[in-house]
Design a protein around this nucleic acid. Structure first.
Length: 352
DNA sequence: CACCCGTGGAG
DNA sequence: TCTCCAAGGGT
């Protein structure tokens, strides 16, 4: 009885705080509008949630505006060409998200009549939608009483209950604790309130406990060691890999690119021909040309550092299997960032 | 469960 | 320069 009272008190305080401090975001319906009966478009909720996976709000905004402008609804996106969507996703990272985005849109179009299902199990059966995203869409778009557990919620809950177990082992416990807090009313706003609190108040380094609406309930705050949470397992060191990339144009002025394999790093994206990226790095051009070594590009991926030696040449005739693009169809913005860096370096040389 | 999968900003 | 990490999911 005491616990139930405490839980509803916490969710009430969070909702009151959210009513006053909710961030205004392109995919969000304000708490005022939400209580007036307006629900966000499930398509926009879904798209934003996919983009926001391990990605900052600041980075997502422009991509979200661009995508919703090009493809206003899920059917339009489902009908789009793969290369177009991947090109627009370029620079945002985690490219499997873009491939799964298209798969999901087409399942919605073909098997669900163009509408997102409202239940969490049905949502989680869709490509690219896991435990977090299914709960987020169900709660935010359909006001289902589902509990979202993202990095923000993990941090807030681990501090609130002062959970000593390190992540990722603590995930089940954190989820169970979070579920006890989810209210039956306004679960969508509550989910967003938890995440806003984690993003703006209960931050990783210097949490602003002085302005936190639930500080009086926080066990870590009481103990004075709140920045210590959540505990995390030590991470592995990143090795450095090396490779060579070859940036060239044909005599007709077309850029010589290749489409990377669908699976794996930068899967399905355009890139410059080159060697594998491993510890050993033999310099071997994919086709003959008057290559000039331009310099190095450094780039860090999720689990390794890359040093890429960039070569350039003009008037090259490639062998079969490459993607040729003239200046009217080539956009550096279609390239993943490491490939765009190589282009920036080589362009300076090739323009001379 | 462990590993793979990007990027850019903050401190 | 370097570490951390941001609305995780797939395998």
């Amino acid at each position: 009885m005491r616990d139930a009272l405490k839980q509803s008190e916490i969710s009430d305080l969070l909702l009151e705080w959210y009513d006053r401090h909710a961030r205004s975001l392109p995919w969000r319906v304000s708490p005022d509008a939400r209580r007036a009966g307006i629900r966000p478009d499930p398509y926009r909720v879904w798209l934003s949630e996919i983009m926001l996976q391990q990605t900052t709000v600041a980075a997502v905004k422009a991509y979200f505006e661009r995508f919703t402008s090009l493809w206003p609804d899920v059917t339009a996106l489902a009908d789009a060409e793969d290369d177009m969507v991947l090109g627009e996703w370029a620079g945002l990272g985690y490219y499997a998200r873009a491939r799964n985005l298209l798969k999901c849109a087409r399942v919605i179009r073909d098997d669900h009549g163009g509408r997102f299902p409202p239940s969490r199990p049905e949502l989680q059966a869709l490509p690219g939608i896991g435990p977090y995203t299914s709960a987020a869409i169900a709660a935010i778009a359909f006001d289902r009483a589902e509990t979202v557990v993202d990095g923000n919620v993990e941090r807030v809950v681990s501090r609130l209950f002062r959970i000593e177990t390190p992540l990722p082992a603590a995930k089940p416990e954190l989820t169970a604790r979070a579920e006890t807090l989810t209210p039956g009313s306004r679960p969508g706003d509550y989910a967003q309130a938890m995440m806003d609190l984690g993003a703006t108040v209960c931050t990783p380094r210097s949490p602003a406990c002085a302005i936190c609406p639930i500080a009086s309930f926080c066990a870590a705050r009481a103990a004075g060691d709140q920045p210590r949470f959540p505990l995390k397992a030590p991470r592995k060191a990143k090795p450095t890999r090396h490779g060579h990339a070859y940036v060239a144009r044909t005599a007709a002025g077309e850029w010589i690119l290749e489409k990377r394999p669908e699976k794996g790093l930068l899967g399905g994206m355009l890139g410059w021909p080159g060697t594998d990226w491993q510890e050993a790095h033999p310099q071997r051009a994919p086709f003959s040309g008057a290559w000039t070594e331009i310099g190095e590009v450094r780039h860090t991926f999720t689990h390794f550092h890359l040093v890429l030696t960039v070569h350039a040449a003009r008037h090259v005739e490639p062998t079969e299997g490459y993607v040729l693009r003239g200046d009217n169809s080539f956009r550096a913005s279609d390239l993943p960032t490491v490939m765009r860096k190589a282009f920036d370096l080589a362009q300076h040389f090739l323009d001379d």
